[in-house]
Amino acid sequence: MRKSARALDRIDLRILAALQADGRITNAALAERIGLSPSPCLERVRRLEQTGFIRRYTAEIDLSPVTRTVTVFAEVTLASHAQADFARFEAALAAEPAVVEAHCVGGGIDYVLRIVARDIADYHETSERLLASAPEVANLTSYVAIRRVKADSGLPLDRLADPEA
């Protein structure tokens, strides 16, 4: 059972913000930062995990010391908007490990993808596999990232939370 966003209180939001900034923080350090004793802090973290507010813990990886990569953003438009076409294309995306992020969007296109490849040739092979496995694609437009200007800094919890929480 998932909690509604209204069920988050200020302490929950502070816990989420602290874990978002440092997923490896110990429970004792987290409790101290939040102003709780360790046992209630751990209970809250477990509740946030069980209710789905915390989906997973992860590490940010930097491969630049050992290899070069290329990040490509791709816009995809499908030939039709039949649900079966969306499902087939999304299955092709799920099977492609180079596609690290995908969003179905509204507007003039249907999807925005973030693809990380070894180089442009590897990206080309990835896009060819996607096109071959998903004939419903009408258009795929690629944008090669030159440099990252802003990294993922997590959700802006203080701006998104219910002000009455």
Rank of each mutant, 00 (worst) to 15 (best):
T141Y: 12
H124G: 08
H81V: 12
V76Y: 00
L13I: 10
I54C: 03
R2G: 12
E164L: 07
V72G: 04
A94K: 09
D110V: 04
R147C: 14
E49N: 10
I61A: 15
E101Y: 14
D158C: 03
A161F: 02
Q50H: 11
F73I: 06
I25D: 07
T71Q: 12
V149W: 13
S64E: 07
R147D: 14
R159I: 09
A31W: 01
P156W: 08
E75A: 15
L8E: 11
V137F: 00
A138C: 06
V70R: 04
R55D: 13
T51R: 06
R14L: 11
A59P: 01
T67S: 13
V116Q: 08
I54K: 06
A145H: 03
D12G: 00
V70T: 07
A95K: 11
V149N: 13
D12Y: 05
S37Q: 12
T71R: 12
N139A: 15
A74N: 07
E125L: 06
E75M: 11
Q20P: 00
E125S: 10
R55Y: 15
A134K: 00
H81R: 14
R10H: 10
R47Q: 12
L93F: 09
T51Y: 12
T69K: 14
A21K: 09
V112K: 06
L42T: 14
S37P: 01
L157V: 08
I109N: 10
I61W: 10
S80P: 02
G23T: 01
P97L: 07
A145G: 08
T126V: 05
P38Y: 05
L93V: 10
L157H: 06
A91G: 08
D12I: 01
I54L: 05
H81P: 01
V45Q: 01
A102W: 05
A134R: 00
E125M: 04
H124C: 08
Q20H: 08
E90I: 09
I11H: 12
I11R: 14
Y143T: 06
V116A: 07
